[in-house]
Design a protein around this nucleic acid. Structure first.
Lengths: 248, 248
DNA sequence: TAGTGGTCTAGACCACCTA
DNA sequence: AGGTGGTCTAGACCACTAA
């Protein structure tokens, strides 16, 4: 029964409050190390929590937490009776930061500005009803905005808002605050669906973004819910110079 | 001291093994409910773990886990001495599934096929060295592939591999298995950086993807490391029909 | 049906940070 | 300087599922 003293080296900035020797972080790091050094191969079954706890000289819960977090990242796969094994196809998901337009622009040192192109109260059109699973005649707010970075078009936003889910928005003029910011601030959500793609700019979109018709645009769509209640669906277009990055 | 009986309703597919009444899931759901019903407003300080544990009639650790997971999603913000407050700007990140080409194609009911366009051993070119932080003269493997769905071009892949990090790959002919699959199977990684953008297809890219030069393409770039050791950088091009989706 | 992971409890110590 | 969250322990019960 060895007791490897593992430094709490971890990708995470050690958030403090850790007992370095047998913290779940140390165990996470040790397991990561064994994977990277091929001590444990992809597809291989590793010792049970009980055994590992003995080996590391800690409580089973601690091993459990380490393994749980590795499983969340996709590095190991766990099944009850079957045990834990190193994933054959590790790390299948990435965390993507959802940008708030203003912050995103300002983070690049540019000056942010937006203008509301249109704003109408309508009944949900067929497509939106289907997408959000809303009954016919549901009142919605349709807003189109243009966001600028240093006075150059940065993003064209076409948004549908489910008014009943965010009643306060009915009176909001969007003068100081864009719908994006307003919703982020006042309408928490718990679920989200995003879609990413490339497209050719339509004539209208091209005009708004000051690019050539048919030029490539980056399309980011997002729909949000708060516990089954649809909040908003938005389609955001960026000129091709835009790049979304995420490291983790 | 009330004991609200909260159903374990949650977005997650209840993975079983839960004591419904006071599970951390139930507590998570209850807190979510209070946020959605505006019982607790954005920016507001909520009761401490101790208090909540008393209110829900459970152990503090259970409340801790519920709150920790909500913090991971970004719905609440926690600081030591300061307590837990509802986030003003909730949910700033999305989970994006990293596709494995073959699975992705086959998931759409199409037949998968790939071909290797080129494969060379080179010293790291300047740009790649800078990107991966490698010294001059580092041996790399440069592979270009085309992936098909039902014999139609699906993805063009341009990949650089840090040979020292994955020595076994030197002998791999990529006949049965694409570099993508090979790396996913044999080269675990712990860190990744992804970039998403739109671009206009170059003449060569257009030819390969069977589209018009200048047509929009969806660009997905990915770099991976295993504990500081760079593994590979890949640039993947999709015709504009491609769409990447994620719900959570 | 037996073994493994999933979860909860009760108690404890500690680091941090703000009042 | 004291309260809050972060974490660990030891023990326990349970659900799932592979053998």
């Amino acid at each position: 029964m060895s007791r490897p003293v593992v430094p709490a080296k971890d990708g995470d900035p050690v958030p403090a409050g850790i007992r370095v020797p047998n913290s779940f972080r140390a165990i996470k790091a040790e397991i990561l190390k064994r994977i990277s050094e091929r001590v444990w191969l992809p597809g291989e079954l590793i010792p049970g929590e009980e055994d590992l706890a003995r080996e590391f000289g800690c409580a089973r819960v601690t091993v459990n937490r380490a393994l749980r977090e590795l499983a969340e990242i996709g590095l190991v796969e766990r099944k009850r009776r079957a045990g834990t094994r190193i994933a054959e196809h590790p790390l299948r998901e990435a965390r993507l930061e959802i940008p708030v337009v203003r912050s995103e622009v300002e983070a690049r040192g540019a000056q942010y500005r937006f203008s509301v192109l249109s704003r109408e109260r309508l009944e949900a059109p067929e497509g939106m009803r289907a997408r959000l699973d809303l009954p016919a005649g549901t009142p919605m707010l349709h807003v189109r905005c243009l966001h600028f970075a240093d006075n150059r078009p940065w993003q064209y936003e076409d948004r549908w808002i489910h008014v009943a889910a965010v009643p306060d928005i009915a009176e909001e003029p969007f003068e100081r605050m864009s719908p994006n910011e307003w919703l982020v601030k006042f309408a928490p959500f718990s679920e989200m669906e995003i879609g990413l793609s490339a497209a050719a700019a339509s004539r209208e979109e091209a005009t708004l973004l000051a690019i050539e018709p048919g030029a490539p645009v980056f399309v980011f769509e997002r729909t949000t819910w708060l516990i089954d209640q649809p909040i908003t669906h938005v389609r955001m277009l960026h000129p091709q110079s835009y790049r979304m990055v995420s490291r983790f």
